[in-house]
Design a protein around this nucleic acid. Structure first.
Lengths: 172, 172
DNA sequence: GCCCTGTCGTGCGGATTTCGCAGGAGTGGG
DNA sequence: CCCACTCCTGCGAAATCCGCACGACAGGGC
């Protein structure tokens, strides 16, 4: 009475690239199910998760720990920044001349950049900025981001109201 | 030997608007500190949090529960969608004629829209889309979003690579 | 074939944490 | 002054977390 099709484990021991981004280590169905459980409630007990996915409590615990260590997933509290005292946010589209990735790395290093993604389209990069007030936002966009070598131009979209924010990937 | 400046509690009993968005219920310093703890590790024990913020275990537990109930914060697992099998993502800028908020509500109702925000700038709305493949993405953008009444035009930015994704608001 | 190695799951205590409840302190209104 | 309300504390019972040892299974080298 174990589980059914458990642990096909396509993982290749030699091929353990934990690059945190890019292709990814290819999760099996059980790990996916565990992640779904934790997306519904990040504090759900391991035993309850085990019951839901057909694994023992200890096995779930080890898998979760590994997913955490590998950086595949993180369990965190998320909030509406406006509620927590960050009054100005913006999405910034960036156009780059030269190496896009090096610019992306420079932006990634900034604390105020909460989200950095390389895109196809009329922007090369999209960056989400979280600031305390207008002065702070102005400084980040006009002084810091535009000062990065390779940045040709930027366009800003100041947030007026956050309507939706979910983390239910895979739960559909 | 309690704590020092605890519980100034600016909360006004009459003024308990828990609108989930917008102004917000004005968190005090202690709740902020609790959130910071849980942003570092969503599974941190209440007792450890209590020690860090100068409160008893039970008090922390009650505060966390309230923050959860009010929708100020949620504790969840977050992942890189690419790792979890969602191979196509895009940010979509939307221009609206008429009531922006009703369009935003319509987009919010779509499962594939993971993030919806009203903005100032050359777009009225920015929407993040998470899809399984190109067909799926195409359908969501060209059929569903553009079919919403009031949508004048859209511009898409397909994700090539996610460079940064953090949840450390308030931890700075 | 055989052994060695590494990965993964299970079972089992003991320490820790969570949870529910009752009580006390502080505040504001009638 | 009393009442209603909110928030914090303390405590005991139940549930959970955590480390550890063992067995099962697959792959590589000899």
């Amino acid at each position: 009475m174990h589980s059914g099709p458990v642990a096909s484990r396509s993982a290749d021991p030699k091929d353990s690239r934990e690059s945190k981004n890019g292709g990814g280590p290819q999760l099996d169905a059980v790990s996916l199910a565990i992640i779904e459980q934790l997306q519904e409630d990040g504090r759900r007990p391991y035993a309850a998760i085990g019951k839901a996915v057909g694994l023992s409590e200890a096995a779930v615990r080890q898998r979760v720990q590994k997913l955490l260590d590998q950086g595949v997933m993180q369990i965190v509290a998320v909030t509406d920044p406006l509620t927590v005292g960050f009054r100005r946010q913006a999405m910034v589209g960036v156009n780059v001349e030269g190496d896009v990735e090096s610019v992306a790395d420079a932006l990634t290093a900034m604390d105020e950049c909460e989200y950095v993604v390389m895109t196809a389209g009329s922007f090369d990069l999209m960056v989400e900025i979280v600031c305390e007030d207008d002065d702070h936002l102005l400084e980040v966009i006009n002084r810091r981001i535009r000062a990065v070598p390779g940045v040709r131009s930027t366009e800003s979209f100041v947030y007026l109201k956050l309507k939706k924010q979910t983390y239910m990937w895979g739960t559909r």
